[in-house]
């Protein structure tokens, strides 16, 4: 008798009986979309952090000079005061040319009269760890007899934060929808598999297989198919996002910078694991449910 044979069990479910390839393709497409949504969400988050960080470290002080004759003197006093209050900050007046440029969006590209009274604008750039306190600066300038307003860009920062949060929420909602669709796809596929493998299940039940044993077969099958599909989709999604990030950085300023970090692959692995688990769980739940229903019918 040849003992070298029969060392590995054959799969009890007929893998050729149902259309596994179609299911893997559908799961790969969903995983691809989920990967893009996830990477987009992560990029949007990073972008928000970068932009907000940059905005929070800059401010513009607008000095309202009391008379044109005192413009230079008051500017000098303001610079001195600001450098005292914010010793580590980079403080510099914007100058007339830059001030006129800032008016262009409001007044159009026209030649402004030379004697147009422009406010004195002073740019403040803080070190990374410094915090800006507009009331403190206004008080310090006020003690020198200067009237000033400070634009700390918080309005823009808040708007960027809101927009980024909205984008992130939309991406996560898409992700949730894709996960939900994966549950439905896996449940339908299991239902179809249970139908096509009806003869096998009948024999298994007849020889005394427990529901758990049968469910495990479908859980394993769905898990493997989910893993295959989601790995393929995630890999393609990563490639597409990387290509897109290179393209957007070079070709257009309209799209946000979809820079992909190596740390994103950790989240992609989590997503693949999630999709695999979802497929397995949906298959197990469907198998138990249908076996119970079948028993009630008989």
């Amino acid at each position: 008798m040849d003992n070298s044979e029969n060392t590995v069990s054959q799969p009890l479910l007929n893998t050729a009986a149902d259309n596994a390839r179609s299911l893997i393709i559908v799961l790969a497409i969903m995983s691809f979309l989920a990967a893009l949504a996830l990477l987009f969400s992560l990029s949007a988050d990073r972008l928000r952090n970068n932009w907000q960080g940059e905005l929070q470290r800059t401010a513009t002080v607008q000095l309202l000079v009391s008379s044109p004759d005192l413009r230079d003197a008051e500017t000098e006093t303001a610079l001195k005061t600001l450098r005292t209050v914010l010793p580590s900050a980079d403080i510099a007046p914007l100058g007339d040319v830059k001030s006129r440029e800032l008016l262009t969006p409001w007044l159009g590209n026209i030649d402004l009269p030379e004697d147009l009274p422009l406010p004195v604008l002073i740019s403040v750039k803080l070190e990374a760890d410094d915090m800006l306190s507009p009331p403190l600066i206004i008080t310090a300038l006020g003690e020198e007899g200067l009237i000033a307003e400070i634009d700390d860009h918080s309005r823009w920062s808040d708007q960027i934060g809101q927009s980024a949060r909205g984008l992130k929420a939309a991406a996560l909602a898409i992700l949730a929808l894709i996960f939900g669709a994966s549950i439905a796809v896996s449940a339908f596929a299991t239902q179809a598999a249970l139908s096509t493998q009806r003869d096998v299940i009948q024999v298994l039940v007849q020889v005394g297989a427990e529901d758990g044993f049968i469910a495990k077969l479908f859980i394993k099958q769905a898990g493997l198919r989910g893993l295959k599909g989601s790995v393929i989709g995630a890999a393609l999604g990563l490639v597409a996002a990387t290509a897109l990030s290179l393209r957007t950085a070079k070709d257009t300023a309209l799209l946000p910078d979809l820079n992909v970090n190596w740390t994103d692959s950790f989240y992609l692995i989590l997503m693949v694991a999630g999709l695999t688990l979802i497929c397995s769980a949906a298959a197990g739940f469907t198998t138990f449910r249908l076996l119970r229903r079948e028993r009630r019918r008989s």
């Binding site: 054959q10 009890l12 007929n14 050729a16 009986a17 003869d199 096998v200 009948q202 024999v203 007849q206």
Partner: peptide, 8 residues
């Protein structure tokens, strides 16, 4: 008989 066709 009910033998499973894809199994030996």
């Amino acid at each position: 008989f009910r033998l499973i066709e894809h199994l030996s």
